[in-house]
């Protein structure tokens, strides 16, 4: 190689330029493209980590400050529903993995099946979440002007609190349950929002998968979506014990 020229390396790489139809113009090779895409997706998830990180920071501070309120408020959540949701989401994570696997093996039918299954599990998850939200709204546990302290200052009036064996909280502590529910709705709401976005993309993928978009060797999109979906799962894995399981004994 001559010591001082900006020479092109067309000769060296000529063999590589068979130009896969999925290779974007800016990349030199499929591997470079795959690497870049994968890295970009992880970087995006990194921003998501920081996004939820802000919420977890807030949670950490207030849980330490208002522990008794957090305990009582957390008892209002149903471990059963939360547990079911955890399993649902983990299952949807599994079906997503299987979807990616099907795409890689170019099995169109099973890809569509698993994507739809993932979507369905997401719907059920959100449905259950909706039921939980509805209950909170009805009991005026949604923060804001209508927030009610009834279940905390007078747990006897609330079967859920009775079942959890809650003792009445003094007013000033009970008021702090609103902080808990602010966080509960912010965190699960942001999580649900991510799921809704994800399910929109799932629908889009199901639609496109029918015309063989991912089963002819170009599985990147499904894989990247899989990363996103698993990430949403990871967030829930932390949300579940932190929000539902505070001092249950």
């Amino acid at each position: 190689m001559s010591d001082s020229t900006v020479i092109a390396h067309d000769g060296l790489e000529a063999g590589h330029h068979e130009h896969s139809p999925h290779l974007h113009h800016q990349f030199e090779s499929v591997e470079q493209q795959a690497d870049a895409g994968n890295f970009a997706m992880w970087l995006f998830l990194l921003t998501e980590v920081m996004f939820f990180g802000g919420l977890f920071t807030v949670y950490m501070i207030y849980r330490n400050w208002y522990y008794p309120a957090f305990v009582a408020a957390s008892h209002q959540l149903s471990v059963k529903l939360g547990g079911i949701n955890s399993v649902l989401l983990i299952t949807s994570s599994l079906t997503m993995t299987l979807g990616v696997w099907s795409a890689q093996l170019r099995r169109k039918g099973s890809l569509i099946f698993f994507l739809m299954l993932t979507f369905l599990l997401g719907v059920v998850f959100l449905g259950i979440k909706g039921v939980e939200y509805k209950e909170k709204f009805e009991k005026h546990h949604f923060p804001g002007a209508n927030y009610s302290l009834q279940s905390f200052v007078n747990p006897a009036s609330d079967p859920v609190a009775v079942a959890a064996g809650d003792k009445p909280l003094p007013l000033d502590i009970a008021q702090r349950t609103e902080v808990y529910f602010s966080l509960y709705f912010a965190m699960t709401g942001m999580h649900a929002l991510h799921m809704i976005v994800g399910m929109g993309i799932l629908l889009f993928m199901i639609f496109r998968a029918r015309s063989d978009a991912y089963t002819t060797g170009h599985t990147a999109f499904v894989e990247y979506f899989g990363l996103y979906w698993h990430f949403v799962d990871i967030i829930w894995i932390f949300l579940f014990p932190l929000l539902y399981l505070i001092n249950r004994h």
């Binding site: 807030v58 923060p143 002007a145 702090r176 609103e178 902080v179 602010s182 709705f185 912010a186």
Partner: peptide, 14 residues
């Protein structure tokens, strides 16, 4: 908008 109390000192926020 909805009045959550995360930064509101009157609701216990900091």
């Amino acid at each position: 908008t909805v009045g959550i109390g995360i930064f509101d000192p009157t609701k216990g926020g900091d």
